[in-house]
């Protein structure tokens, strides 16, 4: 946001902005609670998929449950991030709510930080549901540290996914945004091997997989749980970090164009 870039901190000290950050996040959470039509599908979709494909269709196949638990943790973070940023920002931008907040002295970053926190919270809830299902129904047993690190990957995955969503939110109009998000969300999940191992797919798709941020996240999740993967932790983190920064930079330019 240009408004943020040009901010001069003359009489404005950082800690005084804290109440605004907290309220912004709190009300973002309240809005989520009060909109069950968004919250319920977002939170239940990945666990239902996992139940169907990971547990029921592959019943008794511990390897499949193990693999899909890791990759569905990544799949789980995608919807709240992509929809929360892609669709919600597009709507609030188009309808003037964002403009009003930008005219008022909303502290730089409070808006995006609140939305990011909410995406992370959703990702954490989805992860906990998946973990409970994997443990109770899929017989997945991991060392304590692996449960935790995988949870961190799932929640941290909100960063690149929100950045990607924000590109849509900063440019697409409100009615087109859901279509753009869906165009990315489901195909990318599939092409990144979140639904089935890429080794089961044509060779070409395996070659282009490193193009998708979800693939890098998926590889991290699989590494965490000690499964066969490609690349190194540092390599994936670096790729995702660079991807996040670039997306934010592009989105920021889009948001700066007032419309």
């Amino acid at each position: 946001m240009n408004a943020i870039a040009e901010t001069r901190a003359i009489r404005v000290s950082g800690y005084r902005a804290l109440p605004a950050y907290l309220l912004e996040a709190r009300y973002e959470f309240l809005r989520l609670l009060r909109t069950p039509s968004f919250a319920v599908p977002t939170l239940s979709f990945p666990p239902l998929f996992f139940l169907l494909f990971g547990l029921l269709l592959n019943h008794g196949n511990a390897g499949a449950a193990h693999y899909l638990f890791a990759t569905y943790s990544v799949f789980g973070v995608m919807a709240p991030s992509l929809f929360g940023f892609g669709v919600a920002v597009a709507i609030e931008r188009e309808k003037g709510w964002l403009a009003l907040k930008r005219v008022a002295p909303m502290p730089p970053g409070a808006y995006l930080a609140a939305k990011l926190a909410m995406a992370m919270l959703c990702a954490a809830i989805i992860y906990l549901i998946l973990a409970a299902m994997a443990y109770a129904l899929g017989g997945v047993r991991l060392p304590a540290a692996q449960w935790l690190v995988l949870g961190t990957v799932a929640v941290g995955g909100a960063l690149p996914m929100c950045a990607l969503g924000l590109i849509i939110g900063s440019r697409a109009n409100a009615s087109a945004a859901p279509a753009f998000v869906n165009l990315i969300y489901l195909p990318m999940s599939f092409l990144s091997g979140l639904w089935m191992p890429l080794s089961m797919l044509p060779h070409f798709l395996q070659q282009v997989a490193p193009l998708w941020p979800a693939w890098h996240l998926g590889q991290l999740a699989l590494m965490t749980t000690g499964q066969a993967t490609t690349g190194s932790v540092a390599g994936h983190l670096l790729w995702l970090g660079a991807f996040t920064v670039i997306c934010f930079a592009i989105a920021r330019r889009g948001l700066a164009r007032a419309d």
């Binding site: 009489r11 404005v12 000290s13 005084r16 109440p19 605004a20 008022a104 502290p107």
Partner: peptide
Amino acid sequence: LFRSYYMSDS
């Protein structure tokens, strides 16, 4: 919420 925005001005 809007009130909180104005709190950054000391």
